[in-house]
Design a protein around this nucleic acid. Structure first.
Length: 350
RNA sequence: GGGCCCAUAGCUCAGUUGGUUAGAGCAGAGGCCUUUUAAGCCUCGUGUCGUGGGUUCGAGUCCCACUGGGCCCU
């Protein structure tokens, strides 16, 4: 009897092709639309209905059962509340990491299993093998950075067919060939409510206006005013509305003083880091061998950095030193470890 | 009181020996890229050239006065 696979279908091309491929391969496929957010926001209509329709249309084309899971409440708690709280604390969170950890590969997986599924599948650009997480064949589109907090158990029950394609064109070609309704659809952004609205407007909507404060340059001079320190992240250039010669980059902020620090000096030492401390460390397949030369990525699509020293502070906390300095290390973002093609896990930068 | 500088787009400034539609960077807007936030890349505008006179065929560019900044001197 064919294995029963529940495919998370977002209404995009990737997850549509995922379902199609698995069906072709003979699996017993069921499509599931996860409704995580449906609220309209000022200036933007939430596209969830369109996405749902697209996903359903494809399911009909593929002749597979289709259902919807409503995770709005949990998504709100686990992802949105976390995200807002982190911003308030002055950090820059990564909601999609949390979404994968808590919603897609926990809630969705558990719900699907309860409904009778043997495994789940998503349209992620990643591969998995024996409970391990591997980067996608298409390294440019690799999404393991968002998946490093998923457990080995969850991975062993997950399939990522898209991860085996070397290019996005191949994925689109399949969608086109099969005549899928989503073939020509533009790549979607991760979180619908920050997609078009922007994080600043979203936070304003959630938290209301923030207290203004000083913008201070590398000489200690106040060069302008910001409209809320929570809106700014390390390395950021635009949005400060401060002109005069060279671009200013955010190098830090003090939430108590409500000050944002900037520099025009690209070599400013506050913009470059070799040492970082991680918390909430999670290893997918157990603690790796730190004797090997590992690589770490501290921002999605940022270049990999070679790790020189790893010092364990406790089970879920460690210090690492890099071979070379990296730009704009940002508290709240994740540091994800790689050993060649294997994504090992990682932690949150503090 | 005297002397010397400066005042040009929101900001920092460039504007040749006076000559057609005054420019660069930064900021801002739009787009690309991107399942976080950013970086990055592409495109785009904007100005009573401090005010008032004068010289000249023609002045941001020369002269005078004034106003506002800065500096120096007894």
């Amino acid at each position: 009897m064919a294995q029963k696979i529940y495919v998370g279908m977002s209404g995009g091309v990737d997850s549509s092709v995922t379902a199609a491929l698995l069906k072709q391969q003979g699996y017993d496929v069921t499509g599931v639309y996860m409704k995580n957010w449906s609220q309209d926001l000022p200036g933007m209509k939430c596209p969830w209905k369109d996405d749902y329709q697209d996903a359903k249309r494809v399911a009909v084309q593929l002749d597979i059962p289709f259902k919807m899971y409503d995770f709005e409440k949990e998504y709100r708690q686990k992802v949105v509340d976390y995200m807002v709280a982190e911003y308030q604390a002055g950090r820059t969170p990564n909601p999609d990491v949390m979404c994968n950890q808590e919603v897609k590969f926990k809630l969705f997986l558990d719900t699907a299993l309860e409904d009778g599924a043997d495994m789940i599948a998503t349209g992620h650009y990643a591969r998995t093998e024996g409970g391990q997480l591997l980067i996608a064949k298409n390294a440019e589109k690799d999404q393991t950075y968002f998946l490093y907090r998923v457990t080995s158990e969850a991975l062993s029950k997950s399939l990522f067919p898209i991860g085996n394609f070397a290019t996005k064109d191949e994925v689109r070609a399949i969608a086109k060939k099969l005549g899928l309704a989503t073939a020509g659809k533009k790549d979607s952004q991760g979180i619908c409510f920050v997609g078009k609205v922007g994080i600043k407007d979203f936070l304003l909507h959630e938290l209301g206006p923030q207290p203004a404060g000083d913008i201070v340059d590398q000489k200690g001079k106040t060069i302008g005013r910001h409209d809320g320190a929570i809106f700014y992240t390390i390395g950021q250039r635009h949005g400060l509305e401060v002109g005069g010669g060279l671009p200013y980059y955010v190098v830090g902020k003090d939430m108590d003083k409500n000050e944002v620090y900037v520099t025009t000096d690209l070599q400013d030492e506050r913009l470059w880091h070799r040492k970082l401390t991680l918390t909430d460390v999670h290893w997918i397949d157990g603690e790796p061998d730190f004797g090997k030369t590992l690589q770490v990525r501290t921002r999605y699509r940022a270049p990999l950095a070679a790790v020189e020293v790893v010092e364990k502070i406790s089970d879920n906390r460690l210090n690492i030193t890099l071979v070379d300095e990296i730009r704009a290390l940002t508290p709240g973002q994740s540091a994800v470890f790689y050993d060649g093609e294997t994504c090992l896990g990682g932690g949150i930068v503090i």
